[in-house]
Amino acid sequence: MKMLVVEDEQGLAESISAYLSREGYRCEMAATYAEADEKMYLYEYDCVIVDLTLPGGDGLQLIETLKKRTASTGIIIISARNALEDRIKGLEVGSDDYLTKPFHLSELNARVKSLIRRRNFGGHNEIQYREILVQVQARKVFVNQQETVLSRKEYDLLLYFLANIDVALTKASIAEHLWGDHIDSADSLDMVYSHIKNLRRKLVEKGSGDYIRSIYGIGYKFGTA
């Protein structure tokens, strides 16, 4: 999978590409409009992450040219602009997703994975992690071929974990993933805990390994490492 990160803030671009590289993507970076345009002209990418305010031009313009050239490329906009009109405009020119800065890298990663899944399999796909199998289209979870019934939030939580295996996830990023950014009270963090407890119980009951580990002061990690 080849990715292009178009972001003029050097540090942020590095963080994104480091995070995504760890997930096994090949990441390239472009810091200006011209550079991004040139790279997109020369190479083909599976997914492009674009900041809207770029030196030398508007990210939306970039997306439009890209869409005309190779329509199959997945596009995620990362922008500091949070207005509905910007989101709508972004989706209109052909982007697949819109993330407002500041965002969690884990959230970006989850969105990238979901996007690639949608593009490559049209959603008819399965995620397998050891004995856990998720049928994405049907929203069903199996552990050792036994179906486990999860609530909506527990299912979303599991998917988020599966997108970020062996990565420390902060409680805030989990809460935001589950409830959007309009829940900002301390309660949501407690609720994260209660959902994780339930998910863990339901998975272990069906005979799965206990993959969710809590990291003191930070959050949780899903994986074996």
């Binding site: 803030e9 540090g11 942020l12 963080s15 994104i16 480091a18 995070y19 990362i78 500091a80 602009r81 949070n82 407002t100 800065k101 500041p102 965002f103 969690h104 890298l105 884990s106 990565v167 420390a168 902060t170 990023s173 990291i215 003191y216 002061g217 930070i218 959050g219």
Partner: peptide, 28 residues
């Protein structure tokens, strides 16, 4: 508006930092 980018940078770097296994309790 302009503050969102530096803030994104901070959160991104913090997220990278917490992936490190060798943090002391204080650092965490």
């Amino acid at each position: 508006h302009e503050l969102q980018t530096p803030l994104a940078l901070i959160t991104a770097k913090v997220e990278e930092l917490i992936q490190s296994e060798h943090l002391t309790e204080n650092q965490t």
